[in-house]
Design a binder for these strands. Structure first.
Lengths: 344, 344
DNA sequence: CTGAAAGCGCTTACAG
DNA sequence: CTGAAAGCGCTTACAG
């Protein structure tokens, strides 16, 4: 690997001149500028950011700490984030936690070890020790969280989780459903909790039948959805509609319905969350709540950068939160319940 | 941020002792080891990898240069890669090229600027200038490519693209299809080319009707599939079966079929490639070729690490390729053609 | 424009 | 175990 010294030598000028060319200092003559750039291009040389970061104090690295990237919802967020990082010459260090506490700690450690300039994280937020997040806050490191981290003043992206769920329940009850099941998300997820709270509230409000067993196993994967739905479908009095934590969970419910010989929406209506691109080609197309994931990613990225800039210029960092509103997309997985359930 | 010096001071010993503790040198007494580790844990300190990399010559960073992460197929590969990198303490710098030449160049530059230890790349391989890849090879940098890069001796992951396509055509022709359409992938993709070649060959072999207009618009996204399929469906004599570059393209074809009032597989059979997790909940469930993406990611990761280790120890790097075999998964999107096409 | 110097936080090698 | 020294490839500040 060539160094800045080599480039200087090759182009016959001083190292400081090479540095000046790289950083567009005005005092460099057109002539030498070209000469230096030619040598740089020929050798495809770039300054070592590690070395630059060491002295300059910034690595242009942003840690992306997500649960996984297998959910298309998260992939969209990643691309949204990248779309703003790239033009600003920031880069993403992708770390997945698989929704495990120990891996979240580990990811944070890795992020620190690379001296990232900032991070965007989807942390576990409910019923877990949050002291690792506290330490980030105390250290004053730019950090944006997906969803509010209770008690810690980070900038965060907010979703109208409860309201969306209430809207879904309202819609289903208008269709005539009285027995609505709920496949809740991971226990440690705040959005899952908020959705569940919204669900409980709406069920009460609408005076629907509430049975504890209608709140099925939590989780965020297709497999979780399959297992949770299987259980609900095998109840003596099964729900006629099912609200799922996300579209992947809904997909699992589709599979469970098929295995149980239930038709959608004939025997059971199914609603998802996220509106991933493929939801529209599910069989039948999935009714779901659209989240503007790409924009959500963009907002988080812009926000970290803003905090990084503030920190660098010594200004006080004022945290912000932005609420994104879900939109109910009605497709064909929902319909009025049949008169005589499962009797055919 | 604390430094190693600070840690030494805080634990009342020499910097070299802290270093020794970190690197498990045997000569450190149990007592001081514990003392140092306590201080490290208290302050959540980790050595600065940038600084360490600067002198030690390795960053433990692997560049992942993919087209995008929006295709669940790629997400699986990413998770497969991460699953082997993480336990070995390597980390992924994720760069997406959106299948644009300029962004591929840019990504390579970014990778170089961070002095990554190695890279895994899905490059454009057909009809483009490959000199940037050549330079990587010349520089002796560990690099694994997804698919063979013509003329450049990288270790690469090989797929039996042609054979898979031949298998699909065989299957469709057994069902009785004589007019088979093909939605080819991106022009710059080698796998797309190989699939197309396989398709041509198989169509000849089986003496099926070949029409140039049956080879539809290339691309890798749902939108591409939609547009390509739309065109094929509006032909005077449309194909009765459609082979799609990947499952996302197939999803686009599903939408096009719906818009065109065609039923799957009644009016047209559709086959995809990849077997993404959601293919089984498509309406109808998609017949497709399963690729072991997670394992593919794992293989590539193991291979870069192997090359990095070889390079470090001064051994000659011997490139390898490994072929992965696709498996035709027959679901419900394929059936014999109807006697009288599109007539009723 | 040049040139020399200091320093970022580590690793490496070595004398005690 | 300690301690001092050199150096990785940059940035920063400054005298000429």
């Amino acid at each position: 690997m060539l160094t800045m010294n080599d480039i200087a030598e090759l182009s016959g000028c001083a190292r400081s001149t090479v540095y000046a060319v790289l950083n567009h200092k005005s005092w460099v003559s057109e002539n030498t500028r070209k000469k230096v750039q030619k040598v740089i291009a020929e050798h495809q040389w770039t300054p070592d950011r590690m070395a630059a970061g060491l002295v300059g104090g910034s690595t242009n690295l942003i840690a992306l700490i997500l649960k996984d990237v297998l959910n298309p919802f998260n992939s969209q967020i990643v691309e949204g984030i990248n779309s703003v990082l790239r033009p600003l010459d920031y880069n993403a260090l992708l770390l997945s936690t698989m929704d495990e506490h120990s891996r979240e700690l580990e990811a944070l450690k890795v992020a620190r070890s690379y001296r990232v300039d900032g991070m965007i994280i989807t942390p576990q937020q409910v019923g877990v020790d949050l002291s690792h997040l506290w330490k980030i806050k105390e250290a004053g490191e730019p950090c944006i969280t997906f969803g509010c981290s209770p008690g810690i003043d980070f900038s965060y992206l907010d979703l109208d989780e409860g309201a969306s769920t209430v809207r879904i329940v309202g819609y289903l009850s208008e269709l005539g459903h009285r027995r609505i099941g709920f496949l809740k998300g991971p226990d440690t997820s705040l959005s899952a909790k908020q959705r569940e709270d919204g669900f409980r509230e709406a069920v009460m409000m609408k005076q629907l039948e509430y049975r504890p067993e209608y709140s099925g196993k939590g989780g965020a994967t297709l497999k979780d959805g399959f297992e949770g739905a299987k259980k609900l479908f095998s109840l003596e009095v099964p729900p006629t509609a099912l609200i799922c934590y996300n579209d992947l969970v809904a997909a699992g419910a589709y599979r469970a319905a098929e295995e149980s010989g239930l038709s959608i929406p004939g025997d059971v209506s199914i609603v998802g969350f996220d509106d991933i691109e493929l939801a529209s080609v599910f069989g039948p197309p999935l009714t779901t709540v659209r989240q503007p994931c790409f924009e959500m990613g963009q907002w988080m990225a812009r926000q970290v950068i803003a905090e990084i800039d503030k920190k660098r210029s010594g200004e006080p960092v004022v945290t912000e939160s932005k609420q994104f509103i879900g939109e109910l997309i009605i497709r064909e997985s929902t319909a009025p319940p049949r008169g005589k359930k499962y009797e055919n």
